[in-house]
Write a protein that binds this DNA or RNA. Structure first.
Length: 955
RNA sequence: GCGGGGGUGGCUGAGCCAGGCCAAAAGCGGCGGACUUAAGAUCCGCUCCCGUAGGGGUUCGUGGGUUCGAAUCCCAUCCCCCGCACCA
């Protein structure tokens, strides 16, 4: 016997696996073409930082499945690679080089990067390499992941780029790529597009599409931005900031009047803008502008609340439907002096009445007025105004119906009509469009970030033929859990065009325009195919990897004129492994990566090569809170493995929740897993040291019971693992069976040869069941026990000859009896006074009389049908004589039968109840430290079949 | 707003799809006991309320309903979490 020393034993196995190349998988020789290839993938990690315990689970769940299939006899490929595409790594390097404190702290404190190593991290690939080698690869090795390491690559490798080049040239040729304008975040200081990572403020900002209502002032267009274009008929006036700076400019050949900041925005949104002259807002105050829809002339009033930084800096006022406008108008009216100072006739302003343009239930004629008055808001600076406004906007959007003056649109609900109304007026030239963020956005450099429209290449994910194929792919694959299937379909329908390029970043250049880089979610859609050939591609010069090469590889020899022999060789490897059996991935990736994965496979490959299954994974928490490397709230696999050992880490990660459920790393719980594994180890080594006889001796009831329970465990674990239910499976193999063992230890004398034999058989099977979860421990013990590691032994199968329902039912009766006796004891102990029977000297167990068992047999035969049972029973004259007693018994038994299946009743009917208790008498006697007397009741006693009467007797 | 998931005993968390062996698994925590010089580990019992005999009562977010019977099915309602795009 030796102590459990996970670090030492795990190190031995790691070394052994590496030396043997244990998990390197190759297509089987032609001779065993019948074998079963299983191809498992997981999203390749993005090494912009280190690996934490959350990542560990992402890769361990597929490892368990891979190990399981291997024991089932499959040829299993589980590869890994590294995703470096895009800007995060570059951004991280930039922040390191500029000495940003947060970044340095993450590197030094969270990821323990040594001071003299920091300089190696100053190039993007140097940075990536560090985290790949020292964190991810090390962590994966330490965890014992059964990865084929020959196939690793990065997405910045030349050969990978050739592969992506092939993919994008092919898609372009098929018309699935399209060029167009697209809004991006653009830093006005750095004069380039920026990503969310580059932002100081406004990470949550959304793109908003404003409609510009083209009010006219003479020949000048005064565009006013709104999110509610349908309110145009309710405009009573306009507002402008009299003190802000505005520009009269030539815009696409017209004269426009807009705020100064709007000039650059309009330019960035694809307009030709030539500023002609700068004025203050006062220039327009008191003027009239013409509503392009109604032709009405409305007055422009001064207002300090107008933000010249937002949109065009001139806004229209709809006091009937906007609480803000309503209050602003009231306040303007109240301040005659101010109006007069701007040369406006106060009477004219007083005469302005709100013009309602839609009706909405519960808000009266002038909804904004009602809303403001109901909420008792009197000032435009009241903080409660925002909520009132939001509520009114919402209600009007969903239930407001347009008034008659809207002609063809009259009577329609805003929600349904807004888009059509806007488009119609855009068509006619009354409206225009401008984009703006929902909040201020500031770059890390301090510059303002605005919306810019840039020439971009799109993937046409809304192409009808394409989406149809993708839906087909969804319907053919296995979605685990099944309730995620709808999400894929939903995402496919919801996706629009996807801009697939960026201005900078690591990765593959767009083949026909090398200014651009293919972005990360677009260069990671079919790389699983690359795994199948990655290690062999290295033999081929990069320049040979052209279009024809990959066409031959993926589409066969007839696809190209003069197929490359090497490509055709690789094609065999690809065809051997494909399709991907299961892809394990996080649930938040359904809405992009996983659906892209389906779309690209559906387009580029035949249905036979489409993804066979996707397993969704939940998120990880740490002590109930989200992990965050920037806050240092992470556990690194390194640290955890050092403290607990890899098997404990794995077992915790797999056992605490099913893969698709969120899980929570709690030190307390991990500690307890470690304790449990230690106990398992101790018991196992005890059996290994004293394994009992080679040949099967005569077994006791308890032995046969345990072996029967083992068969059920095998069935449960196998079924659970087939569905990737790692929690259910490990729970059954480990904890649930521990319960059975606990009973067995109470019940059986373990020094008997038959017990040693039984325990040994049980241990061997359990080690095989546990090997996918705790490979180090299970392989070690299995090898000590049998001479072979568990992973080289076949997966256990249920042995029907060992399944014994009768023994299990009998044993359940004994357990039930123990429970009942304890129940009575408990009840007696509750008494205020001492009751001597609570600690009995003798326990009398009376089994139901023979005729009662006869009735039970009838119930078992007929089922829970009181009438049918009664008429059958009453046909027996002896029973008829007993009258009421029979009636009562049948009622009781019917209730008993209702809760049980027919099979169980039959099994019970076949048992000799008294014999069961007599066999267990010695055991019961030991348990309760009392004499146990088993007898059949005298007539008239209260026992019921399988519910003996019990009497505790003190001396 | 759109889409998805969820509310179970001190905590974590099964059960719900296929209603009844469900006062509700397992783990953790707590209490008592055995073992031990002691601690730890291990083992046994208890851990919603009441009860001197294996029983009874009230529970599974809330309110209704279906049913002989509901944690499980249906309806309504409240609350919580996650994703929503050019970000990997």
């Amino acid at each position: 016997m030796s102590d459990y020393d996970p670090q030492a034993l795990e190190a031995r196995w790691r070394e052994r696996w590496a030396e043997e190349g244990r998990y390197e998988a190759d297509p089987a020789e032609a001779a065993d073409a019948a074998d079963d290839p299983t191809f498992i993938t997981v999203p390749y990690p993005y090494p912009s930082g280190g690996m934490h315990i959350g990542h560990a689970r992402t890769y361990t769940v597929p490892d368990v499945y891979a190990r399981y299939r291997r024991q089932q006899g499959d040829n299993v490929l589980f590869p890994i690679a590294w995703h470096v595409t895009g800007t995060p790594i570059i951004g991280a390097v930039e922040r390191l080089k500029t000495g940003e404190a947060d970044q340095l702290s993450v590197l030094r404190d969270t990821y323990n990067v040594a001071e003299d190593t920091l300089k190696d991290l100053e190039t993007p690939m140097g940075y990536a390499r560090h985290f790949i080698e020292n964190h991810y690869k090390k962590g994966m090795h330490d965890l014992g992941l059964s990865i084929d390491w020959r196939r690793e690559f990065t997405t910045n490798d030349d050969r990978y780029s050739k592969f992506i080049t092939w993919q994008y040239e092919t898609l372009k040729e098929r018309g699935l790529l399209e060029k167009g304008l697209h809004p991006v975040k653009y830093c006005t200081n750095e004069q380039q597009p920026v990503t969310t990572h580059d932002l100081l403020e406004g990470e949550e900002a959304e793109f908003q599409e404003y409609t510009l209502i083209r009010f006219g002032h003479g020949d000048t267009v005064v565009p006013m931005a709104t999110l509610r274009p349908e309110t145009v008929r309710g405009v009573t006036n306009a507002y402008i900031d009299p003190d802000a700076s505005y520009v009269i400019a030539d815009v696409d050949g017209e004269e426009w009047f807009v705020s100064a900041p709007a000039v650059e925005k309009l330019q960035l949104q694809g307009r030709e803008v030539t500023p002609k002259r700068t004025v203050t807002g006062e220039h327009l105050v008191g003027q009239r502008v013409e509503n392009p829809v109604t032709g009405d002339e409305v007055l422009v009033l001064p207002a300090a609340f107008v933000d010249a930084e937002n949109a065009t800096g001139v806004v229209m006022s709809v006091p009937a439907h906007s609480p803000d406008d309503y209050l602003a108008l009231q306040e303007a009216t109240a301040d005659h002096d101010r109006l007069s100072a701007y040369g406006i006739d106060p009477d004219e302003v007083d005469a302005i009445d709100p013009v309602p343009i839609l009706s909405v239930e519960g808000y009266g004629e002038i909804p904004a007025k009602t809303a403001v008055e109901d909420a008792e808001i009197e000032s435009s600076t009241d903080p409660a105004l925002e909520a009132v406004t939001r509520e009114l906007y919402n209600t009007e959007f969903h239930t407001g119906r347009l008034n008659d003056e809207y002609g063809e649109h009259a009577g329609e609900v805003v929600e349904d009509v807004r888009g059509r109304f806007r488009d119609a007026h855009r068509e006619s030239g009354a409206f225009d469009t401008m984009r703006e963020f929902s909040e201020a956005v500031v770059c890390r450099c301090g510059g303002d970030v605005v919306v810019s429209e840039q020439d971009t290449w799109f993937l046409r994910y809304n192409d009808e033929a394409w989406t149809a194929k993708a839906h087909d792919a969804v319907s053919r694959m296995e979605a685990i859990p099944e309730n995620t299937r709808g999400e894929y379909d939903h995402t496919i329908d919801w996706l629009n065009e996807w801009p697939c390029i960026r201005n900078y970043g690591l990765g593959t250049r767009l083949p026909w325009d090398d200014e651009f880089v293919i972005e990360p979610l677009s260069d990671s859609t079919i790389y699983m195919a690359y795994y199948t050939i990655a290690h062999r591609l290295d033999e081929i010069p990069v320049e040979d990897l052209d279009r024809d090469f990959f066409d031959a590889l993926f589409y066969g020899e007839s696809a190209v004129e003069d197929p490359d022999e090497r490509a055709l060789q690789l094609r065999k490897e690809w065809q051997y492994w494909y399709p991907v059996t299961y892809r394990f991935s996080a649930n938040d990736l359904i809405s992009n990566h996983l659906t892209f994965y389906l779309l690209h496979h559906a387009e580029l490959f035949d249905p036979d090569e489409w993804p066979a299954g996707i397993v969704i994974m939940g998120m990880g928490l740490l002590e109930g809170e989200k992990m965050s490397s920037s806050k240092g709230h992470v556990v690194l696999p390194d640290t955890a493995i050092e403290e607990y050992g890899a098997d404990t880490v794995r077992f915790f990660l797999l056992n605490s929740a099913e893969p698709w459920q969120d899980y929570d790393w709690r030190t307390e719980q991990v500690d307890s897993v470690r304790t449990q594994l230690e106990r398992f180890w101790t018991r196992a080594t005890d059996i290994i040291d004293d394994p009992g006889p080679e040949d099967r001796p005569a077994l006791s009831t308890a032995d046969r019971w345990l072996l029967s329970r083992l068969q059920r465990t095998v069935a449960d674990v196998t079924e659970a693992l087939d569905g990737s239910e790692t929690r259910t499976a490990s729970q059954a193999a480990f904890y649930d069976f521990e319960e059975d063992l606990r009973w067995y230890r109470r019940r059986a004398d373990r020094s008997r040869p038959a017990a040693r034999w039984t325990l040994r058989a049980v241990l061997e099977t359990r080690l095989r069941l546990l090997a996918p979860f705790v490979p180090f421990l299970a392989n070690e013990l299995h090898e000590r026990l049998t001479g072979t590691p568990a992973e080289d032994a076949p997966w256990p199968e249920v042995d029907d000859a060992v399944l014994d329902g009768g023994v299990e039912a009998a044993e359940a009766q004994v357990e039930r009896l123990v429970d009942d006796i304890q129940g009575i004891q408990q009840s007696l102990r509750n008494a205020d006074e001492d009751v001597p029977e609570a600690d009995p000297d003798q326990i009398r167990v009376r089994v139901a009389a023979g005729w009662k068992h006869g009735v039970f047999d009838t119930v078992a035969e007929i089922g829970a049908d009181q009438g049918a049972v009664m008429s059958q029973v009453m046909s027996d004259p002896d029973l008829r004589e007993r009258g009421n007693a029979v009636n009562d018994l049948v009622s009781e038994l019917i209730e008993f039968a209702r809760a049980r299946g027919g099979g169980e009743l039959d099994t019970l009917a076949g048992l000799d109840e008294a014999a069961i208790y007599r066999d267990a008498a010695d055991f019961l006697s030991d348990e309760f430290n009392a004499t146990v007397v088993v007898e059949v009741e005298a007539d008239g006693d209260s026992a019921v079949p399988f519910r003996p009467s019990i009497q505790l007797e003190a001396a």
